[in-house]
Amino acid sequence: MQRLEAEAVKFFSLPQVEKDKSGPANPFGYGDKRIGVNGDVGWLEYLLFVATSDPLSCTSMTACSFRSALSEYLVAVRKMASDVLRSMAEGLKIEPRDALSKLAMDEHSDGIFRLNHYPPCPPLQGLNRSLTGFGEHTDPQIISILRSNDSSGLQISPDDGSWVSVPPDQASFFINVGDSLQVLTNGRFRSVRHRVAANGVKPRVSMIYFFGPPPAQRIAPLPQLMGEGEQSKYKEFTWGEYKKAAYRSRLGDNRLVQFEK
């Protein structure tokens, strides 16, 4: 965690002209403020990778050090995600215990890794208002695992529509349920709406691994989870179909609405 955070800070501290050589994100690579293709913006810069591919070519010692730290981190987080999903299946009394984890750990699974950097926002210093770092949304994948430094900003929204700040803890991981897991469990687990508020004083660095299933995987409530007479709340779709729908939507859209019965 510490190695990768240090490498991320090193990259985001580079002159803008150097960072721009890794972008523009389309969708992968380096991005600055612009999130996606539908007009969403935030007070951040980021690196976005396909988690299963080499993130950087070793053209310099800096790139090699970055890749080494990132590769080591991804291996460890994949192991943790597998353990978490197996624990979820156990809690739901699902057999086999890898019913959820195998979707995220398949060799064709759609993993994405994101490094976000939220610079301090000078206009906010001393003012009682906030600027959006990353707008409110739910994650479309099965789960996402987030780790950040000791800077605040992450907020989640319970069902009453309010926003609750999550205390920063650089020694902890935050597990977000995604839309796909909500469907797979027929609503027993709910995807969490969250956002990041810009910090007026301290920079925030976060790293998020998004665990998606293979593109052709059918997403529907697991049969072994359904009670007698229980009906699916959702129309069946593939992860590839849902991913395309998410890519076409705005960040804050409720993407699952169009798939509800």
Score class of each variant (00 low, 15 high):
241 E>L: 10
74 L>Q: 11
155 Q>G: 09
141 Q>V: 08
75 V>G: 04
82 S>N: 09
176 N>Y: 13
139 D>S: 05
144 S>K: 09
46 Y>K: 00
59 T>A: 07
96 P>R: 06
250 R>T: 10
173 F>N: 01
80 M>S: 13
194 H>V: 00
52 T>L: 04
189 F>E: 04
141 Q>N: 15
97 R>V: 06
195 R>I: 03
21 K>T: 10
213 P>W: 01
54 D>G: 10
139 D>M: 05
167 P>K: 04
235 K>T: 08
255 R>P: 02
87 S>M: 11
53 S>W: 01
53 S>Y: 10
154 L>D: 02
21 K>S: 09
104 A>Q: 11
230 E>H: 06
236 E>P: 08
181 L>P: 11
104 A>T: 12
42 G>W: 04
167 P>G: 07
152 S>Y: 07
120 P>L: 10
260 E>R: 15
77 V>C: 08
75 V>T: 10
46 Y>V: 00
63 A>C: 14
245 A>R: 13
195 R>G: 04
186 N>V: 11
3 R>L: 12
64 C>R: 15
27 P>Y: 01
59 T>W: 07
99 A>Y: 05
257 V>M: 13
19 K>F: 11
150 D>E: 12
12 F>I: 01
8 A>Y: 01
55 P>Y: 03
73 Y>D: 04
41 V>E: 12
61 M>G: 12
116 N>C: 03
226 M>I: 10
